[in-house]
């Protein structure tokens, strides 16, 4: 098996539309299949980093991002998704009339396209909306969605409702994990996936992330707290503070922060 590409952040600086500098010259390497934790206090630039990795164009970016040897600094968000980068949002937005299933269906077709060229001239409206993915039939996809929904204790009724519309905080986070499981990205960035979760929901979300780890997905976990980390055994823990990598090391770093906070370390 060939080596999976790693995801490299090189001398990255980010400023807000207001001109305010949020991240200053950070460099990190995320290797495939490993788990990274980025901790930091409020306002340290964690969510900004998550958005910049996914290609949100509202920020001004200096420095470079590489996926393997490919420079993706200027790459469109949808193309980054196609490379295998996935962002689990901190506060995912609701979209009326777009169900979880419909979104996953549309996304799966984009991320796992039919490689065989078929140039069919379509006249029939039903055929026009045909399934275009190669490795899974539509019914298999629906089964897969249901299977993971069951695993994450998601009420199947939610799958056909407008995504995140009226969903509880816990449901939103689970739906984000569900999408990662179904879409099988190479890297998932979890932006504060653990905030606002009760103990039971936290365990379920953690088991979802564990499943991704087992499936060989690289995980980049952005969080305030140590509590999720006892489940996930991160390879590297980094601390982001005032826009710079303040500290980096093994799981012990997280424990130390839990004990003495961000201020005193």
């Amino acid at each position: 098996m060939s080596k999976q590409p790693s995801f490299t952040v090189s001398h990255l600086s980010v400023s807000l539309p207001s001109g305010k500098n949020v991240i200053t010259d950070i460099s990190m390497v995320f290797e495939s299949k490993k788990t990274y934790v980025i901790m930091g206090p409020n306002g340290s630039g964690k969510s900004t980093l998550a958005n910049v990795l996914m290609g949100n164009t509202k920020y001004t970016v200096k420095g470079n991002l590489y996926f393997g040897s490919k420079n993706i600094t200027k790459m469109k968000t949808s193309d980054r998704a196609k490379l295998g980068i996935f962002l689990a949002f901190q506060s995912p937005i609701a979209i009326s009339g777009v169900s979880v299933t419909n979104l996953l269906r549309a996304a799966y077709q984009e991320l796992h396209p039919d490689t065989k060229k078929r140039d069919i001239h379509v006249h029939n409206s039903v055929l026009a909306a045909r399934w275009k993915s190669s490795d899974m039939s539509l019914s298999e996809l629906l089964e897969t969605i249901k299977k993971y929904a069951l695993f994450l204790h998601i009420d199947p009724m939610l799958l056909t409702r407008s995504i995140h519309e009226g969903f509880s905080g816990g449901e939103r986070k689970k739906i984000e994990v569900l999408q990662a499981l179904v879409l099988q990205p190479k890297f998932v960035i979890f932006d504060e996936i653990d905030t606002g979760l009760d103990v039971d929901a936290l365990k379920i979300v953690a088991s979802g992330i564990e499943l991704l780890q087992k499936n060989g997905t690289g995980c980049i976990i952005i969080t305030h707290y140590q509590r999720l980390l006892s489940y996930l055994h991160p390879d590297v823990v980094s601390v982001l503070k005032n826009g710079i990598i303040f500290k980096s090391g093994g799981a012990a770093v997280a424990k130390q922060i839990e004990k003495s906070g961000y201020g005193n370390t």
Partner: peptide, 25 residues
């Protein structure tokens, strides 16, 4: 909303039409 959808690999035009179709659904 657009950023959310395109982060799932969907093109920006398709994302806009999903939002519009969702609106009239």
């Amino acid at each position: 909303q657009l950023f959310y959808l395109i982060s799932r690999g969907i093109s920006v035009n398709q994302a806009a039409s999903m939002i519009v179709n969702g609106f009239i659904e």
